[in-house]
Nucleic acid binder design. Structure first.
Length: 471
RNA sequence: GCGCCUCUAGCUCAAUGGCAGAGCAACGGACUCUUAAUCCGCAGGUUCUGGGUUCGAAUCCCAGGGGGCGCACCA
């Protein structure tokens, strides 16, 4: 390195805008416009006294056209490595063969690529390398960049959609003294000064409802939650949830809101509501089908079930259907298990699966007409849960009783059952108005809209085992 | 955590018990309109690691490590 690398580059144009602006420029013509562009050298084609390089930057690709007659330090330019960052100044021209180019006069090396980005045609396909070295994957594989951009647009569209509906965005604690708001095993950490264990949040729910008690009538958070569970193509230990709560609303209102929100995001991100996922057509246009869990079980398993059936009969049916049940489960848990094994994977959707057993829904409000049920729905798309929503439980006595039942299950060995959150009960004692709440897996929404079948494809840096013995 | 599959040059892949190879990248050279440029030349290896079987192991066996998929768990 004979000269120090520059501290900045004055970039006056980008590939995307140049392709648009000079779309009409004829082959062999110059534009008379001089620009400075910057990016990475992706390909180089040397022709003796002419060199063509494909430069890539955030908005697209652009050809650099260099020649010994007009390009400074031409020999040095030819020694650039693929992957090096450069800036180049020159006239925008279209070559005789029709490629829009910058005819390089002066140029500068901005950064060296000491490592190569893999096969120039096939990129990097080793999934381990792609996830571990996302910085290389993003350059080598255009699809990775498209997914990352789509994710940004999804989150942005969600935020704008909610803000235009009068929702206020908040941030609530990630450290929880008591994990709650969902049934899942938490991560534990320790605060030294307070000398106490803290849990990384598994849901946003309880703090957001506290804020509704405090008078924020429409509130939402888009935030990371953490669940101490196995990894899979559809599960990452940290993932992003959207949760929203709306005072004076019930779960019917949440259904209207959810289908409109998701369809709106789909239109903004993909240009429409029709998309393809796992080789199948998917249409997110409202209205979505609304059906009760019991009706869907009957439809898919061929068996009518109900919470009024004796638990022995339900257990026997589950066994006949090949659904494993644990002793001690109540009818609600058995019914949910039958639903999850026989019905949910076969729902293509989108469909609102309505009315869940109270037994498995400690934060939802009793159904106004179906005994033993709560007003809750999940949205299922492509056989997987996308959203979970309730008419929120507002009564502090019932909430306390539900927490205590959970605590007993926890004491009996169910590590996912919730402990009692006495402060949350105290908040309810100040009065929570009728409230509808909804939670959505943002990663899964991005997966649907980008056709990604692995959650790791939509998370820039997914959780992996640390490397050993690598440089 | 369990089961199955997988790991070879920087990248993508061959070689299935008998001399570890190709394309791209790198390196040297030719070429004034290329588009994965082309052509000539040259170099590149702890075949994931350790042990074993064998005259001989990338290949078969055992153990360990990384990854993928499935199961379990969950969203």
């Amino acid at each position: 390195m004979s000269e120090p690398l520059p501290y900045r580059a004055i970039v006056t144009a980008h590939a995307g805008e140049l392709h648009e602006r000079f779309a009409e420029l004829a082959a062999g013509d110059g534009s008379g416009v001089t620009v400075t562009v910057a990016g990475r050298v992706m390909l180089r084609r040397e022709m003796g006294k002419l060199t063509f390089m494909t430069m890539s930057e955030w908005t697209g690709q652009l050809q650099l056209f260099a020649g010994s007659q007009w390009t400074e330090r031409f020999d040095e330019l030819n020694r650039l490595s693929l992957g090096d960052w450069v800036s180049a100044t020159g006239e925008v021209v279209r070559t005789r063969t029709g490629e829009l180019s910058v005819r390089v006069g002066s140029w500068a090396l901005l950064a060296e690529a000491r490592r190569s980005f893999g096969d120039k045609w096939r990129g990097i396909s080793d999934v381990d390398t792609r996830y571990r070295q996302r910085y290389a994957d993003l350059w080598a594989n255009p699809r990775s960049r498209q997914v990352l951009m789509a994710r940004s647009r999804v989150v942005s569209a969600l935020r704008r959609g909610l803000e235009s509906g009068g929702f206020v965005e908040v941030e609530t604690p990630v450290f929880h003294p008591v994990p709650g708001g969902a049934t899942a095993r938490p991560f534990v950490t320790h605060h030294n000064a307070l000398d106490m264990d803290l849990y990384l949040r598994i849901a946003l729910e309880l703090h957001l409802k506290r804020l509704v008690v405090g008078g924020i009538e429409r509130v939402f958070e888009i935030g990371r939650v953490f669940r101490n569970e196995g990894l899979s193509p559809r599960h990452n230990p940290e993932f992003t949830m959207l949760e929203l709560y709306q005072a004076y609303a019930d779960y019917h209102d949440m259904m209207d809101l959810t289908e409109n929100l998701v369809a709106g995001v789909a239109r903004e991100v993909t240009g429409g509501t029709r998309t393809e996922y796992a080789g199948r057509e998917l249409d997110l246009a409202p209205p979505w089908r609304r059906a009760t869990m019991l009706d869907l079980i009957a439809e898919h398993s061929g068996h009518e079930v109900g919470l009024d059936m004796p638990v022995e009969e339900l257990t026997a049916l589950a066994s006949r259907l090949g659904v494993h049940v644990e002793p001690g489960w109540g009818p609600g848990k058995v019914v949910l298990e039958i639903y999850e094994k026989t019905t949910e994977p076969n729902l293509w959707g989108p469909v609102f699966v309505m009315d869940y057993p109270k037994e498995v829904s400690p934060l939802a409000r009793d159904h106004r007409s179906s005994p033993g049920m709560v007003e809750r729905f999940e949205v299922v798309v492509a056989g997987r849960e996308l959203c979970n929503a309730f008419s929120e439980l507002t009564d502090p006595d019932t909430q306390l009783a539900n927490f205590e039942a959970q605590a007993r299950a926890r004491a009996a060995g169910d590590e996912e059952a919730m402990p009692v959150d006495t402060d949350y009960v105290r908040a309810l004692e100040y009065g929570l108005p009728p409230t509808g709440g909804m939670g959505m897996g943002v990663d899964r929404l991005v997966m649907l809209l980008t056709g990604s079948e692995a959650i790791r494809d939509v998370i820039a840096f997914p959780t992996l085992r640390p490397e050993v013995g690598e440089d």
